[in-house]
Simulated scan of single mutants.
Amino acid sequence: MQILVALDQSQFAATVLEKAIALAKQEGANLSIMTVAEDFFDIGDYLDVESLTDKVLAKTKAAAQSYAATAKAAGIDAKVVVEQGVSPADLIIDHAKNKAIDLIVLGHQGKKGLPRFLIGSVAARVVAHAPCSVLVIR
């Protein structure tokens, strides 16, 4: 079994990772940890996008390595995947398709008010379009 845990850099990510590690142990599954560094091309007229993107990518890579160290300390040798792009949901879905993932584990980071309806959450989009089962941790 192939499990992909998609993590952001929130405090809640530790809870999601803990659940994914427990599930990987229970199922004897391979675990991949995915983080996504978002691109900010649409604000390029206002900010130094290249510098901002580089900083976000470096921070995302560091977080991914930290998550992998946590998994290793728990007895799981996880593969690390760091992607960069505008849509984290699309990158998660594409990775799951390309790598024959059996289960995606991710957290629910609910947006409130109008942004939720205009943008939609990453979790909702992944659930709607993933090629496999999705476990959303609340």
Rank of each mutant, 00 (worst) to 15 (best):
A29F: 03
A14Y: 12
Q65T: 00
K19D: 06
V5H: 00
T35E: 04
K25W: 05
Q11V: 08
A37T: 03
I104D: 04
L103Q: 14
G110M: 13
A68K: 07
R116N: 12
V56Y: 09
V16H: 03
E18V: 02
A68S: 12
V80E: 01
A78W: 05
A13N: 03
V82N: 05
K112P: 07
V86W: 11
G113A: 05
D42Y: 15
K112S: 14
H95A: 09
L47K: 13
I33G: 03
A68C: 04
T35D: 02
V82D: 04
L7W: 03
L17H: 04
K25A: 04
G44S: 11
L106N: 01
T60I: 09
L31N: 02
I76H: 07
A71L: 05
K59A: 12
V56P: 07
A62R: 12
R116W: 08
A29S: 12
A24H: 01
A78P: 01
P88F: 13
A69P: 09
D8L: 07
A63T: 10
D90Q: 11
D8R: 00
E27W: 10
T70G: 03
G113N: 02
E38L: 10
D54C: 00
V49M: 11
K97G: 09
A96E: 12
N98R: 13
L52A: 12
K61A: 11
K79E: 15
S51N: 11
D54F: 01
V5K: 07
T53D: 15
I92Y: 13
D94E: 13
T35R: 02
A58W: 09
I33P: 02
Q11Y: 10
A100D: 14
E83S: 12
Q109W: 02
Q9K: 13
K19A: 11
L91K: 09
V56E: 15
T53I: 10
V81W: 03
E83G: 05
L57I: 10
A74C: 07
F40M: 13
A14W: 08
A63V: 06
A96C: 11
A37F: 02
V81C: 08
K61E: 15
L103V: 09
G107Q: 10
D48L: 11
A68E: 12
A37H: 01
D102R: 08
Q26C: 05
D42Q: 14
K72W: 00
K111A: 12
K55H: 14
V56S: 12
V56D: 10
A24R: 04
L47Q: 14
F117R: 10
Q11I: 06
A74L: 02
S66I: 01
K99T: 11
D90I: 07
Q65M: 05
Y67T: 03
K111S: 11
Q65D: 12
A20I: 05
T15I: 08
E27R: 13
I33T: 02
D48Q: 06
D94S: 11
A89V: 06
A37K: 00
D39I: 10
Q11F: 01
Q26D: 10
G75R: 11
K112Y: 09
T35S: 01
D45M: 14
Q109I: 06
L106D: 06
N30P: 00
K99N: 14
F41R: 03
M34G: 09
G113F: 02
A14H: 13
L23R: 01
K79H: 15
